[in-house]
């Protein structure tokens, strides 16, 4: 059987429960050898040291762990690290371009679209996809398609304003 678990090395008892993941994170190749149980969120935070992606619930119910996999927003807490083998992952650390911050990062600061900041990486990653998805046409659409990202500080109005601002600027 073809699998990606079995690599060239002979699996020992311990190795059976590890998996090698070859991925690209924020444009740079990455190789992780992790416990098969490791979620993408854990691999990013604990293995890759990219702690910008946050754990707010670990149950797929808050959106704080939102990252992009092959350009689509997903919840990294419910995806196994093994599942991004061969895929492209983008986190908040990779949101800014070489020329400076992403327009959303600037708009979030300008509109005070966060308070404690804990949900912010997830909000930003979600919003970046929202723009690409063409779902920022109205405030109602922005609110609906950003509802997978909880903000307990309640910065929603300012998040909408920031996204609206960037959406208009890129029209």
């Amino acid at each position: 059987m073809k699998t990606t678990r079995t690599t060239a090395r002979a699996p020992s008892a311990q190795d059976q429960y590890t998996v090698d993941v070859f991925t690209v994170v924020n444009g740079a190749p990455a190789q992780w050898r992790v416990d098969t149980r490791t979620t993408l969120l854990e691999a990013l935070r604990d293995t890759a040291g990219l702690t910008g992606t946050k754990r707010g619930c670990d149950q797929g119910a808050c959106g704080a762990c939102t990252v992009h996999v092959d350009g689509q927003r997903v919840l990294s807490c419910l995806m196994l690290a093994a599942q991004v083998d061969g895929r492209q992952v983008t986190t908040v650390e990779g949101l800014a371009g070489e020329l400076g911050p992403h327009p959303l990062q600037e708009a979030f600061m300008r509109h005070d679209a966060f308070q404690c900041g804990f949900c912010t990486p997830g909000q930003l990653m979600s919003a970046a996809c929202l723009l690409r998805e063409g779902r920022a046409g109205s405030d109602a659409d922005i609110r609906e398609y950003m509802s997978g990202n909880l903000c307990r500080c309640g910065a929603y109005d300012n998040i909408v304003a920031a996204i609206r601002d960037v959406a208009k600027g890129t029209d």
Partner: peptide
């Protein structure tokens, strides 16, 4: 989470 083995086949029959 309990430890588990992980396979990723590429054909339906294998899976």
């Amino acid at each position: 989470m309990r430890a588990f083995l992980y396979d990723r086949p590429t054909a339906v029959g294998e899976a």
